[in-house]
Simulated assay, not measured.
Amino acid sequence: MIVRIMGEGQVRLADSHLTELDRLDDELQAEMENGDGPGFRRTLTALLAKVRELGTPLPDDSLEPSELILPAEDATLEDVRELLSDDGLIPGGT
């Protein structure tokens, strides 16, 4: 799976990591629903760090279609609300 982090680039991520990322996505969604700004910031940072850790960066000149687009680390709670689907940032989760 190709994941784009807005403002950073793309990484290739094995589908087997989606369960781990989905847990963070669920936390992020709950924090957003509760208006928990500090929790939102902490979890978004953790989610993006995990994608960077588990993924393999693609070259900057690569133009692969992204299957998942995540917000930049400095995105606001309002910015991320606009990106959310009913499933959170990572579709198909719990």
Rank of each mutant, 00 (worst) to 15 (best):
E73S: 14
S16A: 03
L83T: 01
F40N: 01
M32F: 02
L77Y: 07
L68S: 01
E20C: 00
L89R: 11
E33H: 03
P57D: 07
D79I: 03
D60A: 15
D74V: 09
G88H: 12
R12C: 01
G93V: 14
E73P: 01
Q29P: 00
D79A: 11
L24N: 02
L48D: 05
I69D: 10
L89F: 09
P91K: 12
L77G: 10
A46I: 01
P57Y: 10
T76G: 15
E20Q: 13
T45H: 14
G9Q: 05
E78T: 14
S62K: 04
S66C: 13
G93R: 15
D61P: 06
H17W: 06
D22C: 08
R41V: 12
A49Q: 12
R81M: 11
S62E: 11
G35W: 02
L58Q: 12
R41T: 14
A72M: 05
R23N: 00
D86P: 10
E20V: 08
G55L: 05
T43R: 14
G9M: 03
P65A: 07
L21H: 01
L21P: 03
L13I: 03
G37D: 07
I5M: 06
R52K: 14
E64H: 10
P91G: 15
L28I: 02
I2K: 13
L68K: 10
G39F: 04
E27Y: 04
M6S: 11
E53K: 13
D15S: 10
P71T: 12
R41D: 11
A72S: 15
D25A: 05
D79Q: 08
L48F: 08
T56N: 09
D26T: 05
L44S: 07
R81Q: 15
L54S: 06
Q29W: 02
L63I: 08
S85F: 10
D25N: 14
E82I: 04
V51G: 05
G93F: 10
G92K: 06
T94Y: 12
E33A: 14
S66M: 09
T19K: 11
R41I: 05
E8D: 13
L70F: 13
I5H: 12
V3W: 09
G35H: 08
T43S: 04
E73W: 02
L77M: 15
L44D: 05
G9E: 01
E82T: 10
I90S: 09
E31T: 01
P65E: 13
I69L: 07
L47G: 07
G88E: 11
E78P: 07
T56L: 12
R81V: 13
L68M: 11
A49I: 03
Q10W: 00
E20W: 00
L28Q: 04
H17V: 00
D86N: 15
K50Q: 14
L44G: 03
L47R: 08
G9Y: 00
T43M: 04
S85V: 10
E53V: 01
P65N: 10
I2A: 01
I90C: 09
D60W: 00
I69H: 07
P38C: 06
G92I: 09
L83S: 03
D79M: 07
P38E: 02
D60H: 09
A30L: 04
E33L: 10
